[in-house]
Simulated scan of single mutants.
Amino acid sequence: MIGFGFWIDAHGHLADPRWDGQQDALIEEARGRGLHFFMQGGVGPEDWARQQELKKRHPAHIGLCFGLHPYWVAAHDDEECEEALNLLASALPQALAIGEMGLDFRPHIMKDSRERQLDVFAEQIELAHFSQKPMVLHLVQAHEESLKILDLYGVPKQKGMVHSFNGSGAKAQDFLNRGLYLSIGGPVCRPDNKKLHQAVKEMPLEYLLIESDSPDQPPPAYKDGLNPPESIWEVARTIGELKSLDPLEILDITTGNFHRLIGK
């Protein structure tokens, strides 16, 4: 047991412009509740620069993560994506992980980007191998396609995490079979999310992470505004109920798991 209140938000976006002018206060408020490290999720080159500025102000509390998010890929053409991949390769030594990377095949996101998303995902897996960085995966409505590409290119030795997992126990097992961690966020707090509740009950504790995905995906208690990092307390409470464990123990276990995946 860690038990000293030095817990971790495994995934969020404190560099998101929606938080501009509020980040310092947010971090201090979260630290007052025992959260001391905030792993970021990369979106695109503009976001990586904002992460770096935030880390300058909070060097001990921000974990850099650079990648090309499927949203970003869907909004840019092939040439722009290739240029960004070259930038990513040079920037990765500064980061703890590569991501968000993956696939999002919801029609309003995908539009005409299906093949481009597949190609950029594959190239980022290869970068993960080369850089020896763990992956942070964003996979939505593309389960079978994601498994095929992960198996084709191979899960890197450093493994990775499926951010904001919100699927069934069977889908969770597909990722666990490949050595990937599962990060759970605000959606687990919805009383009607029975599929995810059952999946969490079945997940091995040693592959579990918790996240806020701040400022998005708030638990019901935070639905009226942007989602702050401290909302992972609600996530820990819900998972604790599902696992018959104290929320503090969930925070301890997931912090230990994060250290094992990402490092201390």
Rank of each mutant, 00 (worst) to 15 (best):
G102D: 07
P247N: 03
A128V: 10
Y71V: 03
S164F: 15
G160I: 14
G167R: 02
F37S: 02
N193F: 06
M101E: 03
K148S: 14
P107K: 08
Q94D: 14
A172L: 08
M135N: 06
R260K: 13
G186T: 04
I98W: 11
Y153V: 03
Q158N: 08
H36K: 08
R190A: 12
G225I: 00
A89Q: 14
E115F: 06
G102I: 09
V155H: 07
W233D: 06
K264Y: 06
H108N: 09
Y153E: 01
D47H: 13
L85S: 00
D174V: 00
G256R: 07
A74E: 02
G160F: 06
E206Q: 14
S146V: 02
D16P: 07
A122G: 12
G263N: 10
P17Y: 01
H138G: 05
G256D: 13
V140Q: 12
G41I: 14
T255V: 04
H11D: 08
K148P: 00
D246F: 01
G21R: 01
L261S: 11
I125M: 13
R178A: 09
K171A: 15
G256Q: 12
A74R: 02
Q141S: 13
E211I: 13
V155Y: 08
L64K: 06
Q124K: 10
N166Q: 09
W72N: 05
E126A: 04
K157W: 02
D119E: 15
T254R: 00
L245T: 09
H61K: 12
L196D: 09
G34A: 13
Q23K: 03
N177A: 15
L85K: 01
L127E: 05
Q117P: 02
H129I: 08
P215V: 12
L68I: 05
M203Y: 05
G63R: 01
S113P: 02
Q22V: 01
